[in-house]
Design a protein around this nucleic acid. Structure first.
Lengths: 185, 185
DNA sequence: CACCTCGCTCAACAGATGTAGAGTGAAGGC
DNA sequence: GCCTTCACTCTACATCTGTTGAGCGAGGTG
Protein backbone atom coordinates (compact mmCIF):
# COMPACT_ATOMS: atom_id res chain seq x y z
CA UNK A 1 0.00 0.00 0.00
CA UNK A 2 1.16 3.58 -0.65
CA UNK A 3 1.85 6.34 1.85
CA UNK A 4 -1.07 7.33 4.01
CA UNK A 5 0.25 10.91 3.62
CA UNK A 6 0.67 11.47 -0.11
CA UNK A 7 3.42 13.91 -1.01
CA UNK A 8 2.69 17.14 -2.82
CA UNK A 9 3.98 15.86 -6.15
CA UNK A 10 1.77 12.80 -5.80
CA UNK A 11 -1.24 14.98 -5.15
CA UNK A 12 -0.43 17.06 -8.20
CA UNK A 13 -0.12 13.99 -10.38
CA UNK A 14 -3.36 12.66 -9.00
CA UNK A 15 -5.35 15.78 -9.86
CA UNK A 16 -3.69 15.85 -13.30
CA UNK A 17 -4.94 12.31 -13.86
CA UNK A 18 -8.37 13.27 -12.56
CA UNK A 19 -8.49 16.16 -15.01
CA UNK A 20 -7.49 13.91 -17.90
CA UNK A 21 -10.21 11.42 -16.99
CA UNK A 22 -12.74 14.21 -16.77
CA UNK A 23 -11.59 15.46 -20.17
CA UNK A 24 -12.01 12.03 -21.76
CA UNK A 25 -15.47 11.79 -20.27
CA UNK A 26 -16.46 15.27 -21.46
CA UNK A 27 -14.98 14.82 -24.94
CA UNK A 28 -16.66 11.42 -25.04
CA UNK A 29 -20.02 13.04 -24.34
CA UNK A 30 -19.85 16.36 -26.21
CA UNK A 31 -17.15 15.65 -28.77
CA UNK A 32 -14.61 18.36 -29.44
CA UNK A 33 -17.29 20.86 -28.41
CA UNK A 34 -16.64 20.03 -24.76
CA UNK A 35 -15.58 23.04 -22.72
CA UNK A 36 -12.64 23.65 -20.41
CA UNK A 37 -15.12 24.83 -17.80
CA UNK A 38 -17.14 21.63 -18.12
CA UNK A 39 -14.03 19.51 -17.72
CA UNK A 40 -12.93 21.55 -14.72
CA UNK A 41 -16.36 21.27 -13.13
CA UNK A 42 -16.36 17.50 -13.57
CA UNK A 43 -12.86 17.27 -12.08
CA UNK A 44 -13.88 19.53 -9.19
CA UNK A 45 -11.21 22.04 -10.06
CA UNK A 46 -10.74 25.59 -11.31
CA UNK A 47 -10.78 26.00 -15.12
CA UNK A 48 -7.46 27.75 -15.03
CA UNK A 49 -5.79 24.72 -13.45
CA UNK A 50 -6.72 22.60 -16.44
CA UNK A 51 -4.61 24.83 -18.66
CA UNK A 52 -1.77 25.02 -16.16
CA UNK A 53 -1.57 21.26 -16.41
CA UNK A 54 -2.07 20.70 -20.11
CA UNK A 55 -1.25 24.01 -21.77
CA UNK A 56 -4.25 24.40 -24.06
CA UNK A 57 -7.54 22.78 -24.92
CA UNK A 58 -6.02 21.50 -28.17
CA UNK A 59 -3.20 19.76 -26.31
CA UNK A 60 -5.57 18.20 -23.81
CA UNK A 61 -7.86 17.05 -26.57
CA UNK A 62 -4.96 15.48 -28.46
CA UNK A 63 -3.92 13.67 -25.31
CA UNK A 64 -7.41 12.46 -24.50
CA UNK A 65 -7.84 11.14 -28.00
CA UNK A 66 -4.37 9.69 -28.46
CA UNK A 67 -4.80 7.58 -25.36
CA UNK A 68 -6.27 4.99 -27.69
CA UNK A 69 -2.94 4.59 -29.43
CA UNK A 70 -1.16 4.08 -26.15
CA UNK A 71 -3.50 1.33 -25.13
CA UNK A 72 -2.90 -0.20 -28.51
CA UNK A 73 0.86 -0.22 -28.20
CA UNK A 74 0.79 -1.55 -24.68
CA UNK A 75 -1.25 -4.63 -25.31
CA UNK A 76 -2.12 -5.19 -28.95
CA UNK A 77 -4.10 -8.43 -28.87
CA UNK A 78 -6.22 -7.48 -25.92
CA UNK A 79 -7.11 -4.10 -27.38
CA UNK A 80 -7.90 -5.57 -30.76
CA UNK A 81 -10.24 -7.96 -29.05
CA UNK A 82 -11.92 -5.14 -27.16
CA UNK A 83 -12.58 -3.06 -30.24
CA UNK A 84 -13.69 -5.95 -32.36
CA UNK A 85 -15.97 -7.09 -29.61
CA UNK A 86 -19.34 -5.64 -30.39
CA UNK A 87 -20.60 -7.17 -27.21
CA UNK A 88 -18.70 -4.64 -25.15
CA UNK A 89 -21.26 -3.03 -22.85
CA UNK A 90 -19.64 0.38 -22.60
CA UNK A 91 -16.75 1.73 -24.60
CA UNK A 92 -13.64 3.03 -22.82
CA UNK A 93 -13.75 6.79 -22.37
CA UNK A 94 -10.84 7.59 -24.75
CA UNK A 95 -12.44 5.47 -27.47
CA UNK A 96 -15.75 7.23 -26.92
CA UNK A 97 -13.96 10.58 -27.14
CA UNK A 98 -12.26 9.64 -30.39
CA UNK A 99 -15.37 8.24 -32.03
CA UNK A 100 -17.53 11.11 -30.88
CA UNK A 101 -15.28 13.84 -32.28
CA UNK A 102 -13.87 12.24 -35.40
CA UNK A 103 -16.55 13.79 -37.63
CA UNK A 104 -16.14 17.34 -36.35
CA UNK A 105 -12.43 17.49 -35.57
CA UNK A 106 -9.93 16.99 -38.41
CA UNK A 107 -7.36 16.10 -35.78
CA UNK A 108 -9.50 13.31 -34.38
CA UNK A 109 -10.36 12.18 -37.91
CA UNK A 110 -6.71 11.70 -38.69
CA UNK A 111 -6.07 9.76 -35.50
CA UNK A 112 -9.01 7.51 -36.26
CA UNK A 113 -7.95 7.05 -39.86
CA UNK A 114 -4.44 6.05 -38.83
CA UNK A 115 -5.83 3.70 -36.23
CA UNK A 116 -8.18 2.03 -38.69
CA UNK A 117 -5.36 1.66 -41.20
CA UNK A 118 -3.27 -0.20 -38.64
CA UNK A 119 -6.17 -2.46 -37.79
CA UNK A 120 -6.90 -3.08 -41.46
CA UNK A 121 -3.28 -3.88 -42.20
CA UNK A 122 -3.16 -6.41 -39.38
CA UNK A 123 -6.35 -7.97 -40.61
CA UNK A 124 -5.28 -7.98 -44.26
CA UNK A 125 -2.16 -9.93 -43.33
CA UNK A 126 -4.39 -12.86 -42.39
CA UNK A 127 -6.08 -12.85 -45.79
CA UNK A 128 -4.71 -14.36 -48.93
CA UNK A 129 -6.54 -12.97 -51.93
CA UNK A 130 -5.35 -9.98 -53.95
CA UNK A 131 -8.13 -7.68 -52.75
CA UNK A 132 -7.25 -8.23 -49.11
CA UNK A 133 -6.60 -4.53 -48.51
CA UNK A 134 -10.03 -3.44 -49.67
CA UNK A 135 -11.79 -6.28 -47.90
CA UNK A 136 -9.95 -5.56 -44.66
CA UNK A 137 -10.83 -1.87 -44.91
CA UNK A 138 -14.46 -2.80 -45.44
CA UNK A 139 -14.43 -4.98 -42.36
CA UNK A 140 -12.92 -2.42 -40.00
CA UNK A 141 -15.18 0.32 -41.37
CA UNK A 142 -18.20 -1.92 -40.86
CA UNK A 143 -17.26 -2.68 -37.29
CA UNK A 144 -16.90 1.04 -36.70
CA UNK A 145 -20.36 1.58 -38.15
CA UNK A 146 -21.89 -1.10 -35.97
CA UNK A 147 -20.15 0.35 -32.93
CA UNK A 148 -21.54 3.80 -33.67
CA UNK A 149 -25.03 2.52 -34.35
CA UNK A 150 -24.97 0.52 -31.16
CA UNK A 151 -23.42 2.94 -28.70
CA UNK A 152 -24.36 6.35 -30.06
CA UNK A 153 -27.54 5.85 -32.07
CA UNK A 154 -29.14 3.16 -29.93
CA UNK A 155 -30.26 1.41 -33.08
CA UNK A 156 -32.86 -1.21 -32.12
CA UNK A 157 -31.80 -4.61 -33.35
CA UNK A 158 -28.23 -3.81 -32.31
CA UNK A 159 -28.44 -2.16 -28.92
CA UNK A 160 -30.94 -4.70 -27.67
CA UNK A 161 -29.55 -7.70 -29.54
CA UNK A 162 -27.89 -10.54 -27.69
CA UNK A 163 -24.16 -9.91 -27.86
CA UNK A 164 -23.41 -13.44 -28.94
CA UNK A 165 -25.71 -13.10 -31.94
CA UNK A 166 -23.87 -10.02 -33.14
CA UNK A 167 -20.49 -11.63 -32.66
CA UNK A 168 -21.57 -14.70 -34.61
CA UNK A 169 -22.94 -12.70 -37.53
CA UNK A 170 -19.89 -10.45 -37.68
CA UNK A 171 -17.67 -13.51 -37.57
CA UNK A 172 -19.52 -14.91 -40.52
CA UNK A 173 -19.02 -11.69 -42.46
CA UNK A 174 -15.38 -11.66 -41.55
CA UNK A 175 -14.95 -15.03 -43.19
CA UNK A 176 -16.85 -14.19 -46.33
CA UNK A 177 -14.05 -13.93 -48.81
CA UNK A 178 -13.69 -14.25 -52.56
CA UNK A 179 -14.19 -17.96 -52.07
CA UNK A 180 -17.48 -17.29 -50.35
CA UNK A 181 -20.93 -17.52 -51.91
CA UNK A 182 -21.52 -15.41 -54.99
CA UNK A 183 -24.74 -13.42 -55.17
CA UNK A 184 -26.97 -14.44 -58.04
CA UNK A 185 -27.84 -10.99 -59.34
CA UNK B 1 -38.82 29.99 -68.60
CA UNK B 2 -39.57 32.31 -65.71
CA UNK B 3 -39.92 36.09 -65.64
CA UNK B 4 -36.85 38.02 -66.67
CA UNK B 5 -37.85 40.46 -63.88
CA UNK B 6 -38.39 38.31 -60.79
CA UNK B 7 -40.97 39.65 -58.39
CA UNK B 8 -40.07 40.61 -54.83
CA UNK B 9 -41.58 37.48 -53.34
CA UNK B 10 -39.62 35.38 -55.79
CA UNK B 11 -36.41 37.11 -54.80
CA UNK B 12 -37.18 36.49 -51.16
CA UNK B 13 -37.81 32.82 -51.76
CA UNK B 14 -34.61 32.60 -53.78
CA UNK B 15 -32.44 34.01 -51.01
CA UNK B 16 -34.20 31.77 -48.51
CA UNK B 17 -33.25 28.78 -50.63
CA UNK B 18 -29.70 30.08 -50.95
CA UNK B 19 -29.46 30.38 -47.18
CA UNK B 20 -30.72 26.84 -46.69
CA UNK B 21 -28.17 25.51 -49.17
CA UNK B 22 -25.42 27.44 -47.42
CA UNK B 23 -26.61 26.01 -44.11
CA UNK B 24 -26.52 22.44 -45.42
CA UNK B 25 -23.02 23.05 -46.72
CA UNK B 26 -21.81 24.57 -43.46
CA UNK B 27 -23.46 21.93 -41.27
CA UNK B 28 -22.02 19.34 -43.64
CA UNK B 29 -18.54 20.71 -43.07
CA UNK B 30 -18.53 21.74 -39.41
CA UNK B 31 -21.36 19.65 -38.05
CA UNK B 32 -23.72 21.29 -35.60
CA UNK B 33 -20.84 23.55 -34.62
CA UNK B 34 -21.41 25.58 -37.76
CA UNK B 35 -22.18 29.22 -37.03
CA UNK B 36 -24.96 31.50 -38.17
CA UNK B 37 -22.31 33.98 -39.25
CA UNK B 38 -20.55 31.37 -41.33
CA UNK B 39 -23.79 30.38 -43.02
CA UNK B 40 -24.63 34.03 -43.69
CA UNK B 41 -21.16 34.68 -45.11
CA UNK B 42 -21.47 31.71 -47.46
CA UNK B 43 -24.90 32.88 -48.59
CA UNK B 44 -23.60 36.43 -49.06
CA UNK B 45 -26.12 37.81 -46.61
CA UNK B 46 -26.36 39.46 -43.20
CA UNK B 47 -26.44 37.03 -40.22
CA UNK B 48 -29.62 38.63 -39.01
CA UNK B 49 -31.43 37.73 -42.19
CA UNK B 50 -30.80 34.05 -41.59
CA UNK B 51 -32.83 34.21 -38.40
CA UNK B 52 -35.53 36.36 -39.95
CA UNK B 53 -36.04 33.55 -42.43
CA UNK B 54 -35.73 30.50 -40.23
CA UNK B 55 -36.37 31.73 -36.71
CA UNK B 56 -33.45 30.13 -34.88
CA UNK B 57 -30.31 28.12 -35.46
CA UNK B 58 -32.05 25.06 -34.05
CA UNK B 59 -34.90 25.34 -36.52
CA UNK B 60 -32.55 25.84 -39.45
CA UNK B 61 -30.48 22.90 -38.35
CA UNK B 62 -33.53 20.69 -38.05
CA UNK B 63 -34.58 21.72 -41.54
CA UNK B 64 -31.16 21.15 -43.05
CA UNK B 65 -30.96 17.73 -41.50
CA UNK B 66 -34.53 16.64 -42.08
CA UNK B 67 -34.17 17.30 -45.81
CA UNK B 68 -32.97 13.71 -46.00
CA UNK B 69 -36.37 12.46 -44.95
CA UNK B 70 -38.07 14.52 -47.61
CA UNK B 71 -35.90 13.10 -50.34
CA UNK B 72 -36.68 9.70 -48.97
CA UNK B 73 -40.42 10.10 -49.07
CA UNK B 74 -40.40 11.66 -52.51
CA UNK B 75 -38.58 8.90 -54.30
CA UNK B 76 -37.88 5.89 -52.14
CA UNK B 77 -36.16 3.47 -54.50
CA UNK B 78 -33.87 6.06 -56.02
CA UNK B 79 -32.80 7.37 -52.64
CA UNK B 80 -32.22 3.92 -51.27
CA UNK B 81 -30.02 3.23 -54.23
CA UNK B 82 -28.07 6.42 -53.67
CA UNK B 83 -27.37 5.69 -50.05
CA UNK B 84 -26.50 2.07 -50.63
CA UNK B 85 -24.21 3.05 -53.47
CA UNK B 86 -20.78 3.27 -51.94
CA UNK B 87 -19.49 4.35 -55.31
CA UNK B 88 -21.15 7.71 -54.93
CA UNK B 89 -18.42 10.29 -55.48
CA UNK B 90 -19.81 13.01 -53.24
CA UNK B 91 -22.66 12.79 -50.79
CA UNK B 92 -25.61 15.20 -51.04
CA UNK B 93 -25.19 18.17 -48.72
CA UNK B 94 -28.10 17.28 -46.38
CA UNK B 95 -26.76 13.75 -45.99
CA UNK B 96 -23.32 15.11 -45.23
CA UNK B 97 -24.85 17.47 -42.67
CA UNK B 98 -26.74 14.64 -40.97
CA UNK B 99 -23.78 12.26 -40.88
CA UNK B 100 -21.38 14.94 -39.73
CA UNK B 101 -23.46 16.05 -36.77
CA UNK B 102 -25.10 12.83 -35.63
CA UNK B 103 -22.39 12.16 -33.03
CA UNK B 104 -22.47 15.60 -31.43
CA UNK B 105 -26.14 16.55 -31.78
CA UNK B 106 -28.74 14.39 -30.05
CA UNK B 107 -31.31 15.81 -32.45
CA UNK B 108 -29.33 14.64 -35.47
CA UNK B 109 -28.66 11.30 -33.79
CA UNK B 110 -32.36 10.71 -33.44
CA UNK B 111 -33.06 11.62 -37.05
CA UNK B 112 -30.33 9.27 -38.20
CA UNK B 113 -31.53 6.50 -35.93
CA UNK B 114 -35.07 6.79 -37.24
CA UNK B 115 -33.79 6.84 -40.79
CA UNK B 116 -31.64 3.73 -40.29
CA UNK B 117 -34.56 1.95 -38.66
CA UNK B 118 -36.71 2.58 -41.72
CA UNK B 119 -33.96 1.35 -44.02
CA UNK B 120 -33.40 -1.71 -41.85
CA UNK B 121 -37.10 -2.51 -41.77
CA UNK B 122 -37.33 -2.33 -45.55
CA UNK B 123 -34.31 -4.57 -45.87
CA UNK B 124 -35.49 -7.03 -43.23
CA UNK B 125 -38.72 -7.50 -45.16
CA UNK B 126 -36.71 -9.10 -47.96
CA UNK B 127 -35.14 -11.62 -45.58
CA UNK B 128 -36.73 -14.74 -44.29
CA UNK B 129 -34.91 -16.03 -41.26
CA UNK B 130 -35.89 -15.19 -37.70
CA UNK B 131 -32.88 -12.99 -37.05
CA UNK B 132 -33.69 -10.75 -40.00
CA UNK B 133 -34.03 -7.66 -37.81
CA UNK B 134 -30.56 -7.97 -36.35
CA UNK B 135 -28.99 -8.89 -39.66
CA UNK B 136 -30.65 -5.95 -41.42
CA UNK B 137 -29.50 -3.58 -38.68
CA UNK B 138 -25.96 -4.90 -39.06
CA UNK B 139 -26.08 -4.28 -42.78
CA UNK B 140 -27.30 -0.68 -42.64
CA UNK B 141 -24.88 0.12 -39.79
CA UNK B 142 -22.03 -1.34 -41.82
CA UNK B 143 -22.92 0.70 -44.86
CA UNK B 144 -22.97 3.77 -42.68
CA UNK B 145 -19.53 2.87 -41.38
CA UNK B 146 -18.14 2.39 -44.86
CA UNK B 147 -19.66 5.69 -45.95
CA UNK B 148 -18.04 7.51 -43.02
CA UNK B 149 -14.68 5.85 -43.55
CA UNK B 150 -14.79 6.68 -47.22
CA UNK B 151 -16.07 10.25 -47.22
CA UNK B 152 -14.92 11.64 -43.88
CA UNK B 153 -11.85 9.61 -42.90
CA UNK B 154 -10.39 9.06 -46.38
CA UNK B 155 -9.51 5.54 -45.40
CA UNK B 156 -7.11 4.16 -48.01
CA UNK B 157 -8.45 0.95 -49.47
CA UNK B 158 -11.89 2.54 -49.55
CA UNK B 159 -11.45 6.06 -50.82
CA UNK B 160 -9.11 4.93 -53.57
CA UNK B 161 -10.81 1.60 -54.28
CA UNK B 162 -12.60 1.00 -57.53
CA UNK B 163 -16.26 1.62 -56.87
CA UNK B 164 -17.31 -1.58 -58.56
CA UNK B 165 -15.10 -3.62 -56.24
CA UNK B 166 -16.74 -2.14 -53.18
CA UNK B 167 -20.20 -2.68 -54.56
CA UNK B 168 -19.43 -6.31 -55.34
CA UNK B 169 -18.00 -7.02 -51.90
CA UNK B 170 -20.87 -5.30 -50.12
CA UNK B 171 -23.32 -7.21 -52.27
CA UNK B 172 -21.69 -10.44 -51.22
CA UNK B 173 -22.00 -9.48 -47.56
CA UNK B 174 -25.58 -8.51 -48.07
CA UNK B 175 -26.36 -12.00 -49.24
CA UNK B 176 -24.50 -13.78 -46.48
CA UNK B 177 -27.32 -15.09 -44.37
CA UNK B 178 -27.82 -17.88 -41.89
CA UNK B 179 -27.66 -20.25 -44.84
CA UNK B 180 -24.27 -18.87 -45.76
CA UNK B 181 -20.91 -20.39 -44.94
CA UNK B 182 -20.25 -21.11 -41.29
CA UNK B 183 -16.89 -20.08 -39.89
CA UNK B 184 -14.86 -23.00 -38.61
CA UNK B 185 -13.76 -21.48 -35.32
C1' DC C 1 -45.53 61.05 -59.05
C1' DA C 2 -46.19 60.21 -54.07
C1' DC C 3 -46.71 56.77 -50.69
C1' DC C 4 -46.16 52.65 -48.50
C1' DT C 5 -44.51 47.91 -48.11
C1' DC C 6 -40.98 44.98 -46.79
C1' DG C 7 -36.56 42.51 -47.88
C1' DC C 8 -32.52 43.52 -46.12
C1' DT C 9 -28.48 45.62 -43.38
C1' DC C 10 -26.56 47.91 -39.13
C1' DA C 11 -25.62 48.18 -34.50
C1' DA C 12 -25.99 46.33 -30.19
C1' DC C 13 -26.58 43.08 -26.26
C1' DA C 14 -25.99 39.30 -23.04
C1' DG C 15 -23.83 35.15 -22.37
C1' DA C 16 -20.21 31.76 -23.05
C1' DT C 17 -15.54 30.48 -24.28
C1' DG C 18 -10.27 29.98 -24.23
C1' DT C 19 -6.64 31.91 -21.93
C1' DA C 20 -3.31 34.93 -18.94
C1' DG C 21 -1.68 36.81 -14.64
C1' DA C 22 -1.93 38.00 -9.80
C1' DG C 23 -2.74 36.27 -5.50
C1' DT C 24 -3.20 32.67 -1.43
C1' DG C 25 -2.42 29.34 1.75
C1' DA C 26 -0.57 25.14 3.02
C1' DA C 27 3.33 21.69 2.39
C1' DG C 28 8.09 20.88 3.14
C1' DG C 29 13.08 21.95 3.55
C1' DC C 30 16.45 24.42 6.50
C1' DG D 1 9.78 27.52 13.64
C1' DC D 2 10.64 30.49 9.84
C1' DC D 3 10.67 30.95 4.94
C1' DT D 4 10.42 29.39 0.38
C1' DT D 5 8.00 26.76 -2.97
C1' DC D 6 4.17 25.74 -5.56
C1' DA D 7 -0.50 23.56 -6.32
C1' DC D 8 -4.33 25.85 -6.67
C1' DT D 9 -8.04 29.69 -6.97
C1' DC D 10 -9.68 34.40 -8.30
C1' DT D 11 -10.26 37.99 -11.42
C1' DA D 12 -10.02 39.76 -15.73
C1' DC D 13 -10.00 40.19 -20.83
C1' DA D 14 -10.67 39.74 -25.62
C1' DT D 15 -13.30 37.16 -28.74
C1' DC D 16 -17.07 34.72 -30.52
C1' DT D 17 -21.72 33.10 -30.17
C1' DG D 18 -27.07 33.44 -31.00
C1' DT D 19 -30.45 36.75 -31.13
C1' DT D 20 -32.99 41.35 -31.28
C1' DG D 21 -34.76 45.83 -32.74
C1' DA D 22 -34.20 50.02 -35.32
C1' DG D 23 -33.46 51.86 -39.64
C1' DC D 24 -32.79 52.26 -44.85
C1' DG D 25 -33.81 52.08 -49.51
C1' DA D 26 -35.53 49.90 -53.56
C1' DG D 27 -39.98 47.62 -55.33
C1' DG D 28 -44.70 47.65 -55.85
C1' DT D 29 -49.34 50.34 -55.68
C1' DG D 30 -52.60 54.09 -55.86
Amino acid sequence: MTDAQPTRAQRREATAARILEAAQEEFGTHGDGATIRGIARRAGVDPSLVLQHYGSKQALFALAVRAVDDLDHDDVPRHLEEVLDVRLRELPAPTRALLRSMLTSPQAAEVMSTYLQERAATLAATMEDDRADTRAALVVASIMGVTIARHFLDLPGLSDARGSDLAELVDRWLDTGPDGPTPER
